[in-house]
Design a protein around this nucleic acid. Structure first.
Lengths: 216, 216
DNA sequence: CCGGTAATTCTGCAAGCGTATAATTAGTTG
DNA sequence: CAACTAATTATACGCTTGCAGAATTACCGG
């Protein structure tokens, strides 16, 4: 009756799943979990709603996949910028801190996504496992960087103290991340990175210096 | 037709509004914003859905009121436990830190509520104002405590440095709060408070000691 | 150029959503 | 005890939601 059907192109499974996941993440970041309806996700991904259930058994499955993708990309980006560089341990630690406290990590979108998934993390065991893995990966990497930096400074630390330092430094980063992401106008550009480096340096007794990209 | 109508008691405006707000907060904490439907809120508050629109012009209004109540209670609880005590400045600061890193503040419910409102805070200007006020109240109080503690230790700090210290200490608290609330099983009981006191003490160069309630 | 396959669209449904409004009932006042 | 008022319930409406299944169409191998 309604004349012509909508034209479409066939795509690979990976491509379409990726599009749908990206669309879901965009919507959750912008409008919270409520905004990620199957219809909205499909429209943003450029397909019709029915296709979602061709690639995901249920909407909940898509959301879980989106969360896994989000966590993985967060840590992957982080690691990628650190690997392949030939910095000394202290510079690597400084870079890690600086990266954590700048976009795209410190950003309204990231914190919005993080918050949008929290209640799922608290209730769904699968989501919780994903979260736990990501969090521990982040903290473990930070702990290794701290260990290397302390060792390079001639002050190696025993495991128990190392764990405490990592938790504290991680908390400092997370706190600055939170505040800078939710109320960005409260802080001058680069202030968060500077503060993070200075205070983490103070906690560890290491003079951390920023050597990031150009500064005006 | 359906026989008897439901029995009810008339209540004051404050009481009913409070009940509805409490119900909304419970639901958001447990199941995220999605769970706080008008029907669910009404059922939990022991009334029928229509009553919500007798006390709030729209559901959005109720949610905004709930958020304001949440933020206010968070800071009020905090302040109340500190006022009326005759502790020296350093003990007051220690108490502030310790309170922030124990239930009910450091708790799955609180972080669940906080996260559940974030996307509203980011989009709605009214919500944003509420958030900003609460955040600044918390940080300003912390800053005053730090100022007093430093002054009492004979090392008063100038405003600019004081602001930086407050932001950093606040971030450390927030980070520990976040991690302890989302993954409580990662930390031993009291570990967060201990860590917070130790590391904030290290940042400020003050020996903060815990003198909270009994310890096993 | 012609089938076959599965990726994609389309249509529809039952349930739940927020909201509007009329009907009732509890409590107050004289 | 009867009238009055406002708190509360009840009912209904239009819209959206996630999901299901049938119909179509793009692409691939012959």
């Amino acid at each position: 009756m309604s004349g012509t059907r909508r034209r479409f192109r066939r795509e690979g499974e990976a491509q379409r799943q990726g599009d749908l996941i990206a669309a879901a993440l965009d919507l959750i970041a912008a409008g919270g979990p409520q905004a990620a309806t199957v219809r909205a996700i499909a429209e943003r991904a450029g397909v019709t709603p029915g296709l979602i259930r061709h690639y995901f058994h249920t909407k909940e499955d898509l959301i879980a996949a989106a969360y896994a993708s989000f966590v993985e990309q967060m840590t992957a980006d982080h690691r990628a910028t650190l690997d392949g560089t030939t910095l000394d341990p202290m510079a690597r630690l400084a870079r890690f801190v600086s990266l954590s406290l700048s976009p795209p990590l410190t950003d309204a979108r990231t914190v919005g996504l993080w918050a949008g998934f929290i209640h799922l993390v608290q209730r769904d065991q699968h989501m919780r496992a994903i979260h736990e893995r990501g969090y521990h990966a982040f903290r473990d990497e930070l702990q290794m960087l701290i260990a290397d930096a302390l060792a390079a400074a001639g002050r190696p630390a025993e495991p128990a103290r190392l764990r405490a330092e990592a938790i504290a430094c991680n908390a400092l980063i997370d706190g600055l991340w939170l505040e800078g992401s939710v109320l960005p106008e409260d802080f001058a550009p680069g202030e968060l990175s500077r503060l993070g480096l200075e205070k983490i340096g103070a906690l560890l007794g290491l003079p951390l210096r920023d050597h990031a990209e150009a500064d005006g």
